[in-house]
Structures are given as C-alpha cells and as structure tokens.
C-alpha cells in the first residue's frame, strides 16, 4: 500500500514515527506551519521555525527515504497580535523559494475574531501575489461551522483565487458539503478524540463522493496518531472497498492537489 500524509507536524514527532510511517507505505509527508503550544515572542522565533521546516526537518525525513514538504505562514492562533503578525507575514516571501515549500498554510481562523480575519486576508493576498497554493485550517469544535462560512466567503470574494488550488482542512459532516460545493478541496482529519474517526471519514466519502478529498492525521504534540491515514485504509477494506479506491483516496487524490506545485515530486512513483 502507498499513501501520502498531506498534513503532519513532524517537528513534534519522534524519529520512530518516521520509521513507522515509511514502513506503513508513506510516500511523502507535508508539514504546514502551526502553533508550537505557546506564543512565539518575536519575528526571529518564526524565522527559526521556518528554517526548521525548510532545512532541518527535510533532512531528518530523508534519513528514512521520505520526501518532506512544508507550508509557511503565521498560524491563526498567533494572529491576535497584528503588529507581530504583520512583521511575520513580511518575512514569509524569503522562504517561498525553498525547494520543499508548497505554499501558504495552514492559515485560517481559530476563535473567529476580527484580527484573525485581518491576518487571514494578508496571507491570502500574499498567496495571490506569489501564485501559491493555500492550505486552510478551520477552527475547532463549536467554532468550526462559523469559521468555515467566514473563510469560504472571504476566499470567494477574491476573483483571483482558484478554488481548485485551495484545500480547506479539518472538515466534518456539517462543513464538508459547503466546501466541495464551492469548488474547493476538502481535508478530513483523523483524530482520536476530536475532528473525525476512520469510520466517519469513510461515511463522508460515501455521502459526498471521493473526488477533491484527502485524509490526514494532522499528527502533532497533542492527542494524535501518525498512522491514522493507513489505519483508515483498513476501515475501507472492512467495508469491501477495492485497492483502487483506497489508492485513489490515500495516494492519487493528495498527489493530484499537491502536484499543482511543480516542486512536489515523488521519485519512484509513476504517474498512474
């Protein structure tokens, strides 16, 4: 079996996790910039983190033969301080030409505040200016529905945004249809306690079709499972889905979206 982990925060994971993922068939891992669990206090703190995402982490993954890609941004949880946010957004272009950077992400909203909306808009304008793919984080729990609506309205207000080049991540049953209906890609996150479980993820595929959807573990420093994506293949097989279906959802779909960035390459995997 082959699969792509399109959303994993590997800076928080051990090398044992890299070994387990590769053993399970992982062909590439993509790492969006996110919150460290505490607020960074300066632009230099972000610069160091972006270096970690573009230099150190790809080298660590390469020891296991795993291609590592990243996304750069200031995450919405740190967007309340707009002075710092503006300064961080100003250094992002330094990193967009790095060979493993696929786009701007994971931007989005956290508690749906005006300042978060402002920082989100700055990132969208940056992505438009630099023709970047966009990966969007939608808020947690009771804030997700409202945040998803706001994000979709903000994105659709930009004529230059092609929804086929934007993935809205962490969708659940109450948000997936509005994302797909407006032409965007949808990411289903498999978490042990929140977001989606493997059975619910397969239910959503049955209800909405399997096009323009990827699955991810979003493994980080919290309660999460770096093997959640291949474990969902097991749920598909228990329901009788074919190997081709599993390959389409776990490998070909994320490859289709990510390949819109020419830097995304999978040596050893043919185009079928």
């Amino acid at each position: 079996m082959r699969y792509i982990e399109p959303h994993g925060h590997m800076v928080s994971r051990t090398t044992d996790d890299y070994r387990a993922m590769v053993t399970a068939g992982c062909a590439a891992v993509c790492e969006p910039a996110f919150w460290a669990g505490y607020d960074r206090s300066s632009v230099d703190g972000f610069r160091d983190y972006f270096r970690q995402l573009t230099r150190f982490e790809p080298a660590r993954a390469a020891k296991y033969g795993l291609p590592h890609y990243s996304w750069i941004c200031l995450n919405p949880k740190e967007a309340e301080d707009l002075v710092l946010a503006r300064d961080v957004v100003a250094i992002i272009p330094e990193f967009l030409s790095e060979p493993n950077v696929l786009g701007i992400g994971e931007i989005g909203l956290n508690r749906n505040t005006r300042n978060e909306v402002t920082a989100f808009e700055w990132h969208v304008e940056l992505a438009i200016r630099h023709s970047q793919l966009i990966l969007v984080h939608t808020p947690h729990l009771e804030d997700k529905l409202k945040g998803t609506r706001l994000i979709l309205d903000l994105l659709c207000a930009h004529r230059e945004i092609d929804p086929a080049r934007v993935i809205i991540d962490h969708v659940e049953e109450h948000t997936i249809r509005q994302v797909l209906d407006r032409g965007f890609w949808a990411g289903i996150t498999l978490y042990p306690e929140s977001k989606s479980s493997p059975p619910r993820a397969v239910d959503m595929l049955e209800l909405c079709g399997r096009d323009r959807i990827w699955l991810n573990s979003a493994c980080d420093w919290g309660v999460s499972d770096p093997l959640a994506v291949p474990k969902t293949a097991l749920e598909m097989r228990r329901r009788g889905y074919t190997d081709d279906f599993v390959d389409a959802v776990l490998f070909r779909n994320p490859r289709q979206f990510l390949s819109q960035c020419p830097k995304f390459q999978l040596p050893g995997h043919d185009a079928t």
Binding site: T113, R114, E142, L145, K146, E173, H174
Partner: peptide
C-alpha cells in the same frame, strides 16, 4: 454538530 455550533455570522471583536 450543527446543534453544538455557534450559529452567529459576524467576526468577534
């Protein structure tokens, strides 16, 4: 999920 969600539309101050 809808029952447990914030139904309002405006961003918070």
């Amino acid at each position: 999920l809808e029952r447990l969600s914030d139904p309002t539309r405006a961003p918070l101050a």
